[in-house]
Design a binder for these strands. Structure first.
Lengths: 204, 204
DNA sequence: TTCTAAAATTGAGTCAATTCCGATTTTGTG
DNA sequence: CACAAAATCGGAATTGACTCAATTTTAGAA
């Protein structure tokens, strides 16, 4: 049960995702009709629904790939962080933010975020929550690393701090994707300014 | 132009909101069909769309009322804050959180948040952003007040801190409404724990 | 009171996601 | 090669939000 059939399955998954990603970008999420995605992926509408529960899950698959890339990129920073708390945070969060619009338009992010809060129990909703948790864990890992290196105070509540930093960044990012004219540089500057308060409190 | 016609208009608005609020609660947002809302409000479907651009805006009107009440309740705390930073924050944020489920179910919050990120330029999207900003301003006002009273350090970046605190609370609240089984007491405890880091850094 | 233009209401029709399902094709296996 | 299981196909049916041309109601002037 894992020869040709599995390969074709993977292939159809890929074709659907690629077609959808292109159409979401060009026509927007709402503008991309399932029928069009099916045609471009050379499968039938029914097949798409055989692979994904609903339109949102297709977007979800695309978003997941993106976030996983970001998580990967972040590993390097955690392993080898810059030698002070402020730069370390800025570098890690910078990676998250700079990568964010590589494959996904702001509109796609808006839709993805909306769906994940609208249907937290759908496959995508759960996956999205898991990704958020993974990002929080990575920030926490960075903090732990900085503490271990003697760059951050040891008596700070690391887990709480990690979540706090993530939550703030995430909310700033949400506002960022809501305003089409917002610029990445300004987003990063605003977050840096906020984190400065924390950095002052925790730098060893 | 402000006699019968205006009265009827206000009356229809009220009837639509009341019908929608009841149905949203009973049947959920998706479960409440526009047709049913129209029937219960004794107007036609077309009329509803004459009053609100889309289904989300109806929910938006209900949410706005709720948040405005919360803002009002918060004014008292800002005017007369508890005598230390930690309690002051806990009291204000506590008001926000405790009020939050008075009229709105978690599901309604999820939908409202989803819509506000999905359609940031719709009437409701804009209104929701304005409400968020108002909440941020209120937290900032509290911080300024604490600084004026000599309870918080004056050299802290108040505006950035206010936004940071709001963003963290808001994201925690989003996660809270995403999990039906999450309890308010736990939410407040988690936020208190996070804010403790900040409190330690800014208390005079 | 009567008449007219503007404002509002109406509800049948449109559109797209999603579901259904029988017919057909493809794949794994003895 | 043949058969059973698994998947695909495609198109019809359903559903519910939203639109729009026709109709009704209201304000205010004569």
């Amino acid at each position: 049960m894992s020869g040709l059939r599995a390969r074709q399955k993977a292939d159809r998954h890929r074709r659907i995702i690629e077609a959808a990603a292109e159409l979401f970008r060009d026509a927007g999420y709402e503008g991309a009709k399932i029928e069009t995605i099916a045609a471009q992926a050379e499968v039938s509408v029914g097949t798409i629904y055989n692979y994904y529960q609903n339109k949102g899950d297709i977007l979800g698959a695309i978003v997941s790939m993106e976030v996983n890339e970001v998580l990967n990129a972040g590993r390097g920073v955690v392993a080898n962080p810059p030698a002070n708390v402020g730069d370390a945070l800025d570098t890690l969060l910078g990676i998250y933010i700079e990568h964010s619009l590589h494959y996904l338009s702001k509109e796609m992010w808006r839709q993805a975020m909306a769906i994940s809060t609208q249907l937290p129990d759908s496959p995508f909703g759960q996956a999205y929550s898991a990704l958020d948790r993974a990002l929080i864990e990575q920030i926490r890992a960075l903090i732990a690393r900085l503490q271990a290196l003697g760059l951050a105070r040891r008596d700070i509540d690391g887990p709480a701090l990690g979540e706090l930093i993530f939550n703030n960044m995430n909310m700033m990012f949400i506002e960022f994707v809501k305003r089409e004219e917002a610029r990445i540089a300004e987003l990063r500057a605003a977050i840096r300014r906020q984190n400065r308060i924390l950095v002052a409190a925790i730098a060893a």
